[in-house]
Structure formats: structure tokens, C-alpha cells
Nucleic acid binder design. Structure first.
Lengths: 368, 368
DNA sequence: AAAATTTGATTGTACGTACAACTGGGCGGA
DNA sequence: TCCGCCCAGTTGTACGTACAATCAAATTTT
């Protein structure tokens, strides 16, 4: 059985239970060393030993001439909570991701949290490396943007161990399906639907769509795109749906677009996976002597900075970006301070509704 | 004078000096409590008090039945090195800053360091807040992009205390003049010189410059711009130099540009503080019916993503961006692992030479 | 030769005393 | 009323003793 505990340890545990039970409240005064010594029939030195260990652990504060006081409530080794939150994102520097990070950073800073940042470059091995690094020192929580969410998730064990360690985390943009984790994202299927519906309503019947399909975002946008065709009864030529993966993004979709635009029955409208693709699509079309939006309409996604920087203001769908970052930070902090793995209002995902911004890159087709 | 130190404190300091002087080496055994007590004519209890405080600080290790041993050499509170590095930047999400962060992040991650990120929004109060937050938990080093470097530095005490705490840090883009700190930056004066020289060589004689002057970067670029005029003997009309500050950047320079371009003797070339300004300058000029580069040449700075996204590929000067971030990380790690406040090869600044990239926004003036 | 035991050294626990240093309140004098 | 002083109560420092627990090496026993 248990070896006999030293008396000062017994006293320590007794005092701890007093604190936890509320018999001693934070800030309140502890009976003096002499009183305790008498009550427990111990020498004052022994009481001092117990007190000084508790003081070292940060639970008591002794003030010469005044007395001994309780510092904070709480469990044994709570050890000042870290107040550091990690964000693991696919790309730090490009496109809308800086804005998401910025929103989160602003919110976190104002709430007294520090932000740890790491980037996966959309590479699953780096994702694991990032997680390992982040967890190498104490952390209060994590915000994760999944890497290649449409494929499998080899880092699942990592996430499970985080759940079992009661480390709160949530996902943005997309979540791994295998995990039950709160997620903030845009309703991408609705976005694809909205974009295609808009063009159909304008009178377009030959619309090509370009989607990156190693992220679920692209898959969902494509799904909405196809849905809009189905509901309008418009046939969708197979070669009018172009899918590609991250490494191909620089050339494959552009090559296909040129082929389509040069061929017979060229599409009168293009739906791009995002603005990053929409801008080069516009340039490619112009190089072929086509005018935007007269000959070809283009709709992008995400309302990024590119939408206005390029010559033609781009018709695109909104993405909350900074607001999403802020909200993710808010929710994560609520989870941390609530001590729960799931947000207070249930584990519901937050779905942002993308809205169409009409600018000058899309219009009715020439012969409507 | 000094109050008399308690005997156990005197003993503590004595032992510390033994450790630091090498009389006691890490891993070596400390004389037993009784020996020390006899040597110093103290009671064993007093020796125990000194020992236990040193043990608490992590310098000694006591093993029952064996003896007391020295844990590690080194200064008082070395405490397992954190391997976390902070970056304080002006803007996270905009322009070239994400690329700098990205370079630093990649390098840090590959070396096993975590990256803490904070943004000042170019606000000195937030800068202080960021520093305070970052330092609230252990940190190995800091990379700082100064806020409004051309103005004073109210957070100087903070930086000085960091130096006195032997916390390595370095500056990027610009440094506060009051601090002797290693710095990585572009030779902005040379950049301004190069841009103006180029335009002069093309035959331009009426060149307007637009510079943001609350950052030293802008001040230096302006200086080079003026230098080029002086050396070429070209008079520089006072209203052809437009200076502005961060809050004005959205409208003042554009307003002035329109006035200049509408007026008589309009400039045939514009030098913009950076690409972020160059792009709207181009748009403004085109709205006035002027063609680029036929009627007006425009040169930007930093070779940002905007330089290619906008309709006309922008002639601009390079900025190392990612490479600068990587190099800053490398140097900081060297300082940390070298244990020195200054880099091994002396505290020399790294000066990057900006190079001109000729694209399509600048050419010879119409009647050359 | 191997195993068990003893032994000495060392730190851990526990009690005791004494005085110093500090705090806050009460008391008395200016 | 205010100031200084004292006093009781508290923690801090310092010394002392005694024994327990542990470790490693020497010693004895098997």
C-alpha cells in the first residue's frame, strides 16, 4: 500500500482540499503558521515546510508581518495557462490567407493571446511537422486549415491525441470528415450554384467551369456549378468542366481554357475556382482577341485583392476572410475559457453565405 | 548601504560563484551539507535552506543517500531554451509583408523553431502591446519591422530592456536609429536613385515622385530620387515631389497626381513609393485618357504581386521579400545559438541591392 | 565466487528554541 | 487632528537535536 506520507505532505494535501472545496477562497487569509501547528499538533517548522512548497507552486503567498494568503483557486498543477494559440494554414503569403490570419491575429491580440503561425504549403507531411512543432511547448488551442481536405488524412492520430488531451481546436474553410470538430466555412456549394445561376440568368448556355479538386472547397463549388445546370435543364458538355490539382494550377487550366476558347462553340462564360485563376483566365482570353465581358464573361471566387487590381474589376463571390479569422479566434477562446472541447452553443459549424458582387467581368452574352 | 544579507543568501551567492567560476562543474558533486555547515560555521538547517532554493532554481539536484550535484552550468535562470521566435511586423496581410513572413516561417520551421506573429498596423501603441504580449512568455529572439521608423521611438525602454536581458533581436526593412541592432534592409536610397536615373536616361525631364515619409524607407527613396536629379543637372519642380503619410495614402497622392497630370507641363513619368501606389496611379492616368507608357511612364518599387496582376506589367525595383525573411531567421538563429547579442560576423547590416526590372509601364517619352 | 549483511555517509523528516523584521492598530502626547 | 510610539501578531532567519530513508561500498556469510 501507500507508504506513510510525511506529515508536511499530509498537511499540504489538506490545505489543497481546503482551497478546492472553497473553505479557503482566493485572496483569503490562511490561518497563521502557529494556529495551524497547534490545530494539527505539528511544529511550526513542519507547517512552514508545507507552506513554502505551496508558495513555490504558486498557490499561496506569504507576506511578512501580515500573514499567508491564497493566490488562485484551481487544480494542483495548473501552472499559468499558456495563452498562446496556433494557426496552421496552407499558404501564409498568398491570396486570401493573409487576411484570414490578420483577422485572427487582431482578435487574439486584443484578448491577450499570442499567435503561433505555421504553413503547410498544402503538404501533408509538413502539416504533421507543423503540428509536432506547435505542440512541443504548451499551447491553449489551435486553428487549422486542412491540407488537401478532399484526400485522406494521414495525420488523424495527431488530431485524436489532441482531442484526448482536451486541447481545443477548430477548422476553417473545410474540415476533415473523419473528425467531429467545429468548423467555420463558406457554403461553397451554394457559391458554385449562385455563380452558375447568375450566368444562366444572364442568358449564358455554354459555361465552362474550372475547379481545383484536391480541396473540398473546389469539389463543393463544382457540385453547385453542376446543380445549377441540372435545375435549369441546361446540358453541360463534359469538356466544359475542367478539374485540376494544386501542382497543375499554373498551366493546365489555362491550357484547357485556350483550347476551349479557340475551338468551335466556345463557351461564353467561365467560372473560375477562385480569383487567382480568374485573372489569368481573363488575360488569356484577351490575348486570343476576345473582349471581356463582351465575348466572354468571367466569374471568380473569394473577392480577393486581385479582383480590383487587375484591369477589369472582377465579378466574384464574397469570402469573409478577416471576419472568418476573427470569428474563429473568438470561438476558440470561448472554448478555451469555457474549458470545453466544443463551443458553448453546440458543435454547430458556422456556414457563411457567399454573395455575388457584380462588377465588370460578366455580362449578357453577345447574342442573347 | 546594503542591508545585511541573510546568511543563507550569502551562502547561495557563494555557491553560485563556485559554479560560474568552474570550481564546481556541471554534474559534479557538491560538498555535503555537513561539510559546508562546518566550513562556513553554519548550522546544517541553514545550509539546507540555501541548497533547497538552489534546487528550486534548477541549479542543484539533491539525491537522498548520495549527495548533492550541480545540474547545469550557466546563468541563473537559463531554463530549457524555448525555441520560439517572434516577428513583429507592421502589416500582416498586405502587400509584400506576407512574403517576408513566409520566408521566415519556412526557415524557422526547418530549423525547429516556432513562429510567433504579431502586427502593429503601423501604430506605436500596438507595437508596445505586441512586445509586451510576446515577452509574456519565454522567447528565444525577435525579428522586428519598425513602426513609423522616421518618427521617434517611444518604445525604446522596451528594446533596451531586451538588450539588457540578453534577448537577441534584429530589425528588417529599417531600424530605429537610436538602437545599435543588426538590420536587414534594401538600399532604398540606391533604389530611388536607380529609378530616377533610369527614367532620366530614357529622356524624361519632368518626373514626379510620390513618397510616404513616415517610414525611413520612403525618406531614403526620396533622397535617391532627388540625388539623381542633382547629378543629372535636371531641375526638380517643388510640386513634383509629393510626400504623404500612412493615413493619407488612399487619396492624397492620387489627388495630387491627377492635378499634375491635368495641369500644363504635366510630368512624363511618375515614380511611386511602391507598387501599391503605382497601380492606382496607372489607373488614374488612364482615366484621364493618358496611355501607359506612351504618355506617362510609371515606375514602382518592391516587385510585388500587383506588378503582374494589373493590366500593364509594371516596371519596378526588386525587393528580396522571402529571401529577406529567410536570412533574418538564419541570422537570428545564429545569434541565439551563438549566445551573442550580435551576429558572428560583426554587427554589420545586410544591405540588399534593388534591381530594376523593365516591364511595360515605362518607356521613352513621346517626343524624346 | 556470489549473495547477503553491515556500515558509513548523505539527504529527508520532524521537532524545538530564539530572535529579527515587518504589519497594522491602538494609545498617548503634541 | 495628527504624529510618533508601542504592542501584539505574523512571517523570516538561525541554530540545535534526533531519527528515518536511501545509497554505495565494504564486509561477512553462504
Amino acid at each position: 500500500m501507500n507508504k506513510r506520507l510525511p506529515k508536511y505532505m499530509i498537511l499540504k494535501n489538506e490545505l489543497l482540499s481546503w482551497i478546492e472545496s472553497g473553505r479557503l477562497s482566493p485572496g483569503g487569509q490562511v490561518p497563521s503558521e502557529n494556529e495551524i501547528a497547534e490545530q494539527f499538533s505539528l511544529s511550526r517548522q513542519t507547517v512552514r515546510q508545507a507552506f513554502s512548497e505551496l508558495e513555490r507552486q504558486g498557490l499561496l503567498e506569504r507576506v511578512q508581518g501580515k500573514g499567508t494568503f491564497v493566490r488562485r483557486a484551481g487544480v494542483r498543477d495548473e501552472a499559468a495557462q499558456p495563452r498562446t494559440i496556433g494557426i496552421v494554414t496552407t499558404y501564409i503569403s498568398d491570396y486570401i490567407f493573409p487576411h484570414i490570419v490578420r483577422g485572427a491575429e487582431a482578435e487574439l491580440r486584443s484578448r491577450g493571446y499570442r499567435l503561433l503561425l505555421a504553413s503547410t504549403d498544402n503538404d501533408k507531411e509538413k502539416e504533421m511537422e507543423c503540428l509536432r512543432l506547435m505542440l512541443s511547448e504548451p499551447l491553449s488551442g489551435l486553428i487549422i486549415e486542412p491540407t488537401k481536405s478532399a484526400e485522406g488524412n494521414p495525420n488523424l492520430p495527431f488530431y485524436l491525441s489532441m482531442q484526448s488531451k482536451n486541447l481545443p481546436f477548430l477548422m476553417i474553410n473545410e474540415s476533415y470528415r473523419e473528425l467531429e470538430v467545429p468548423c467555420l466555412k463558406v457554403d461553397d456549394e451554394l457559391g458554385g450554384l449562385t455563380a452558375a445561376r447568375y450566368l444562366i440568368k444572364q442568358g449564358h448556355t455554354r459555361i465552362a467551369g474550372f475547379f481545383k479538386t484536391d480541396d473540398l472547397q473546389g469539389v463543393n463549388r463544382l457540385r453547385g456549378f453542376m446543380h445549377a445546370h441540372r435545375e435549369a435543364g441546361i446540358p453541360l458538355a463534359p469538356d466544359h468542366v475542367v478539374t485540376y490539382t494544386t501542382p497543375q494550377k499554373g498551366d493546365l487550366p489555362l491550357k484547357r481554357a485556350r483550347e476551349l476558347l479557340k475551338g468551335p462553340d466556345r463557351p461564353t462564360a467561365l467560372v473560375a475556382y477562385n480569383d487567382e485563376l480568374a485573372v489569368p483566365l481573363i488575360h488569356a482570353a484577351r490575348e486570343l482577341g476576345l473582349s471581356i465581358p463582351g465575348d466572354v464573361s468571367v466569374v471568380g471566387f473569394d473577392d480577393s485583392a486581385l479582383a480590383l487590381a487587375s484591369g477589369i474589376p472582377l465579378t466574384t463571390l464574397t469570402h469573409p476572410k478577416e471576419e472568418m479569422g476573427r470569428e474563429a479566434a473568438r470561438r476558440l477562446i470561448a472554448m478555451i475559457e469555457g474549458g470545453s472541447l466544443y463551443p458553448a452553443g453546440g458543435a454547430e459549424d458556422k456556414l457563411y453565405i457567399p454573395e455575388l458582387i457584380e462588377r465588370n467581368s460578366a455580362a449578357q452574352p453577345r447574342r442573347g
